[in-house]
């Protein structure tokens, strides 16, 4: 639509045509008391200098942003079906300038990759490279492909399109809302129209992960640590826009970690997980070893490691049983130690 065509339309007609404009017009306080059935040109004519100054209103800037918003939202909605089927990293160099120890590293939906290496070795840089869809223009000189192609620059610059969602131990809910209100708000920001069903699924998934159940009317800030983590994971799995999820240190999250990973991979996420917990590291399909700022090697989880994982899981179940028993006031006995 051209500038002139837009000017002839009223806010009301524009919203009918592009429902997503509601959020844009909500942010325009100068419009608050004006008649939304009049055309923009007519509304502009009502605005004198004093009014414009009071509302920090600038007609050219407004029209420019309105057109930007419509164009980008249309692209965004049209692109919602775009699926990341493969993310590829092509090697760069480590801090000493030596080439990284792999040829080509692929990540596909439903797969889990763990990342190991000492703190400060380059895990954050790797994540940042993915987030920024590096094109040989970051300190590591890595290059990324999406679906085997050079990625669209919108992955870098658009506010609505981010490749990576992040979950870490330090994150908290800060909004003063109930679980339900919160999820509705998130759904709205993602332009999900009929969100009730989705919201119920998120809440029941989260309740499966956390030991103690919470209701949709609980305030998000009143959730326990484990419940918060569970809700964040379920929400990220089902409602986040980002195809890649990075999990950073959820070792002591107080949730069912195996199930958490299943929920994420079940929603077609590419899961990356920075961890040194053997149980989590071995749940991954592959692991990336980082040294000296570069990827030193990529190891596929072997059959032997998978067998070890089964052992570890048994031990983990035993551990959790004892925790539950302790919590309910039981005295631990020898049989608690049996598998």
């Amino acid at each position: 639509m051209t500038q002139n065509e837009i000017l002839q339309q009223s806010p009301q007609v524009l919203i009918e045509k592009y429902p997503f404009l509601t959020s844009f017009f909500d942010g325009q306080h100068w419009m608050a008391d004006l008649n939304p059935t009049r055309s923009l040109a007519e509304l502009f004519a009502l605005i004198d200098e004093g009014f414009a100054e009071d509302h920090a209103f600038d007609a050219d800037a407004f029209i420019g942003q309105l057109i930007d918003f419509i164009t980008e939202m249309q692209a965004f909605i049209g692109n919602d079906t775009f699926k990341v089927n493969k993310l590829t990293i092509l090697p760069g160099t480590n801090k000493s300038g030596e080439p990284e120890g792999f040829e080509k590293l692929d990540f596909e939906p439903k797969t889990i990759t763990s990342i190991v290496g000492p703190t400060g070795s380059g895990k954050s840089r790797l994540l940042a490279d993915i987030e920024w869809v590096a094109q040989g223009d970051t300190p590591t000189r890595r290059k990324m492909l999406i679906n085997e192609q050079l990625p669209d620059s919108a992955w870098r610059f658009s506010g609505n399109k981010k490749l990576v969602a992040q979950l870490s131990q330090n994150m908290n809910f800060v909004m003063d809302l109930t679980v339900k209100e919160f999820l509705e708000l998130h759904a709205k920001s993602r332009m999900v129209s009929d969100a009730d069903d989705l919201i119920n699924r998120i809440i029941s998934s989260a309740n499966e992960l956390a030991g103690e159940k919470f209701s949709p009317d609980t305030a998000i800030t009143a959730l326990s640590g484990g419940q918060s983590r569970a809700l964040m994971i379920a929400d990220t799995a089902l409602l986040s826009q980002s195809p890649v999820v990075l999990i950073d240190e959820i070792e002591n999250a107080g949730i069912d970690r195996k199930k958490a990973l299943e929920i994420l991979t079940g929603e077609d996420k590419i899961v990356l997980m920075a961890t040194h917990d053997p149980l989590l590291a071995l749940m991954a399909d592959q692991r990336i070893v980082i040294k000296n700022g570069g990827i030193h090697s990529v190891i596929k989880t072997s059959a032997e490691e998978r067998a070890l994982l089964a052992e570890l899981e048994k031990a983990d179940i035993k551990h959790q049983k004892m925790r539950t028993a302790l919590r309910s006031g039981a005295v631990l006995q020898g049989e608690n130690l049996k598998y």
Binding site: S23, G159, N160, K162, A165, Q166, L167, S168, N170, M171, N172, F173, V174, M175, F182, L183, L185, H186, S189, R190, S228, M232, D235, T236, L239, S240, Q241
Partner: peptide, 13 residues
């Protein structure tokens, strides 16, 4: 780093 992924997305929107 201190808020949830959902809050980041809502805020960015």
């Amino acid at each position: 780093d201190i808020v949830s992924q959902a809050e980041r997305e809502v805020f960015a929107a």
